[in-house]
Nucleic acid binder design. Structure first.
Lengths: 223, 223
DNA sequence: ACCAATCTGGTAGTCACTACCAGTCCGGTA
DNA sequence: TACCGGACTGGTAGTGACTACCAGATTGGT
């Protein structure tokens, strides 16, 4: 069956992607993003420049690959529609961050978080990466609005959802920057929750609300 | 005096910039951003490609030039520090938008608004422009935080200011998109105010700021 | 008339990125 | 086992944004 077939292929493909990306982030961190050419990355990874472009459509994608969006959207649709918008979105962002900082990269949590931090630092300090990263947030905003599932007939409600989503994402981004500045010593979900509270008021962030994600049970005994 | 000297030079310089930018936005709108080369813009403006690069460091800057930041910062420092953060920032954004939609481009208000709309549409629909525009917001965020003038010793207060600024800017951006979708038929400051109210609650936007831009004041007709 | 600063233009080069084409590997089939 | 179709990979030759480096032209002030 092409099923098994494709999973085998997909594994190899994912592995080469991982190797290329690892070398890319390392080189970018060592020499700087602009000072490193795609050819440099290809040589370090032992492939041709063509292969790099096959796996990553642009140089920026070597740092920016992100499955964050899917995670957030899933948690949004799972959230109770009775809650206020900001709480639904904020809860999904906090939970997704908890998942990301944990199982980011295979088994080794430590290495996964270091890798995430390295990518984040690049995204923050390199203008081109920062710009594309913020644009990804823009796409994520649309995904969130879709996941909220409000009827699209009411333009006022749609506008409200757009505003809530963009403001929440902006707060999260600020939290990410703060987290990176702290070298990841603090707990990312907590920082995000604090940012949301700072923006929308302390009452908007509820630790164990109607969001039935089991991950949230394991973390953050504070509050 | 080098004063008069420089102002004369600056006038010529500003004029050529204006011409180049006008042709650029026109061509980008007609043929699309990616399908238009810098050489095309240069030919249309009657200058060499080199001259274009002298005035606009990147192709994106042909659309993105923005003095918006300075306006907002000025209004922030002029605002009362007693008000809550979000109100100070939001008020500055609304007022700046009112200034921009009015005196954007010389004498002709109509043309100025059309030009602003054309640029905005490009910024929203073209990925590269959208990304850089959002990154400009990131720089504007820092400017706002600086203008707020909170003491930098307290990291908590600084974080709070960062979050408030980024969330306000995100709400404003959503309002800009909405305004562009409406082809500028609505009043931009009102849309921004509505977005801020949607994000932070109706009570946060107060028309009592003294500046005459508010949805309650019935300035339905321009002029 | 002369000087100095600025504006403008040309040439050559780097680099990201894109077709277009060819070789290679690999799982399943006659 | 020999073969075939679909992938992954690689090379070549471009385009286009952008950047030195250099040379002529214009302009404002002495």
């Amino acid at each position: 069956m092409s099923d098994q077939h494709s999973t085998l292929r997909a594994q190899r493909r994912a592995e080469t992607q991982r190797v290329i990306q690892a070398h890319a982030v390392r080189l970018f961190t060592e020499r700087g993003y602009d000072a490193t050419t795609v050819t440099d990355v290809a040589e370090a990874a032992g492939v041709s420049p063509m292969t790099v472009y096959r796996h990553f459509p642009t140089k920026e994608d070597l740092v920016l690959v992100d499955q964050h969006g899917r995670l957030v959207a899933e948690r949004i649709v799972a959230s109770s529609a009775a809650q206020p918008l900001v709480r639904r979105i904020g809860g999904a962002l906090v939970d997704s961050a908890a998942t990301l900082t944990r199982g980011a990269r295979g088994d080794d949590v430590e290495a996964g978080e270091r890798f995430l931090l390295a990518r984040l630092r690049l995204m923050i300090s390199t203008p081109a990466l920062r710009a594309r990263h913020l644009d990804n947030h823009y796409a994520l905003q649309r995904a969130i609005v879709d996941a909220l599932g409000n009827d699209a007939t009411d333009p006022e409600a749609a506008f409200h959802a757009q505003v809530a989503a963009s403001a929440c994402l902006a707060a999260m981004h600020t939290a990410l920057v703060r987290w990176a500045e702290d070298d990841g010593r603090t707990e990312l979900p907590d920082v995000i929750a604090k940012a949301l509270a700072a923006a929308f008021g302390d009452d908007i962030v509820e630790p164990t609300g109607g969001v039935g994600t089991s991950e949230s049970a394991g973390r953050a005994e504070r509050r």
